[in-house]
């Protein structure tokens, strides 16, 4: 029972959804099942949120290092949760739009969460530069190809690159760096992308089959 039922459920649901693609009256099932997934995921929030609360409460209770910061997390979590679930400050009340400009929820989002997220994202500017500095070195042939391709694209997107090769006559203008950059993007890059995508497609098909057939069942945990 502990072992067979989950495997049967996986098989049954998966096969049903594959079949539904070919049966017009069942065509919308895939979409419905995605909604079911979303609903189950909301229930899972009880587990996730509960875990978050438990970890930080424990940290505060046992005064582990940095416990002060856990208070920040707890307060932020509870305030935001209250603001969102009770729609505090929302002129439309409980049926108002969640993201109305005056609501606490949106104010907290716009002024705290959004700058934090954008800045964390913006750190990538630094990291992408340091990764280029470190990784683009002509260590071997593969790395050199990587380096050259990246270098041409980078150069092609600077006015410097345009200046450098603008003397090349129009009948050979493919060799102008900006044109070469575009050509790499639409030629070799496209080929590589396609090969990767075809591989991924097959990988996912085969993985899905292994799951449906019950060969792959690590996610179910212990069989006993």
């Amino acid at each position: 029972m502990k072992r067979e039922v989950p495997l049967f459920i996986t098989f049954f649901v998966g096969t049903l959804l594959i079949a539904s693609v070919f049966i017009p009256p069942a065509e919308s099932w895939g979409e419905n099942f995605s909604v079911y997934f979303d609903i189950i995921a909301v229930f899972a929030f009880f587990l996730g949120g509960g875990n978050l609360l438990r970890i930080h409460l424990q940290k505060v209770a046992s005064k582990r290092p940095d416990w002060g910061y856990s208070i920040v997390t707890l307060v932020a979590f509870l305030v935001m949760l209250a603001a969102g679930l009770f729609k505090l400050g929302n002129p439309g009340g409980i049926s108002g739009n969640l993201t109305t400009a005056q609501s606490w929820f949106q104010i907290l989002f716009q002024n705290i969460m959004s700058p934090l997220g954008s800045t964390m994202y913006a750190l990538l500017a630094f990291f992408v530069a340091s990764a280029s500095y470190r990784a683009f070195r002509a260590k071997n042939r593969d790395a050199t190809i990587l380096l050259v391709a990246a270098f041409i694209i980078l150069l092609g997107r600077t006015p410097f690159g345009t200046m450098l090769t603008s003397w090349i006559p129009p009948q050979y203008d493919l060799l102008q760096v900006p044109n070469l950059a575009i050509w790499i993007m639409s030629g070799p890059n496209l080929a590589g992308q396609r090969a990767i995508m075809i591989g991924i497609g097959l990988g996912i098909v085969s993985m899905s089959l292994r799951i449906l057939l019950g060969i792959e069942r690590t996610y179910l945990g212990d069989d006993r």
């Binding site: 500017a125 992408v128 530069a129 280029s132 500095y133 470190r134 683009f136 070195r137 002509a138 380096l147 990246a150 270098f151 980078l154 150069l155 997107r157 600077t158 006015p159 410097f160």
Partner: peptide, 16 residues
């Protein structure tokens, strides 16, 4: 954009 691009390019050269 262009200015920082040039900086990245120069650092790649320095690294190499």
């Amino acid at each position: 954009q262009s200015f920082s691009h040039v900086v990245v390019v120069v650092f790649i050269i320095i690294g190499n």
